[in-house]
Amino acid sequence: MLDLSIQIISIISFVGGVFFILTGSIGLIRLPDVFSRIHAAGMIDTAGASFIILGMILQSGFSLITAKLVFIGIFIFFTSPITGHVTANLARKKGVIPIGKTKGKTL
């Protein structure tokens, strides 16, 4: 009974992760400029990766593999905003004009 419920939760979490990753890929193709595409890439890095890693944690039982999976999740969680911010900052510095409104004074 417990095994069955763990299997079901794991499948639900795999489905959620795959949904977020596919949506992020579609957004990466469809959105208009590089600043908007960073949002889609951030979605792949946070929700997609976390849900798929959660599914694998539930599949693996409790061992050293679980701790390593948690470490990969935390590592992706910490490095995703850094690459996003560095890309956005460099594109802005090199003069890529963002599409859309600009409110108030910007730097």
């Binding site: 992020g24 990466l28 792949i44 997609g48």
Partner: peptide
């Protein structure tokens, strides 16, 4: 170039998974 770097980073995340 920044689009390409962003796409390469996302491909890296997907390969890790």
């Amino acid at each position: 170039t920044y689009d390409r770097i962003l796409a390469a980073n996302s491909i890296g995340t997907i390969i890790v998974l």
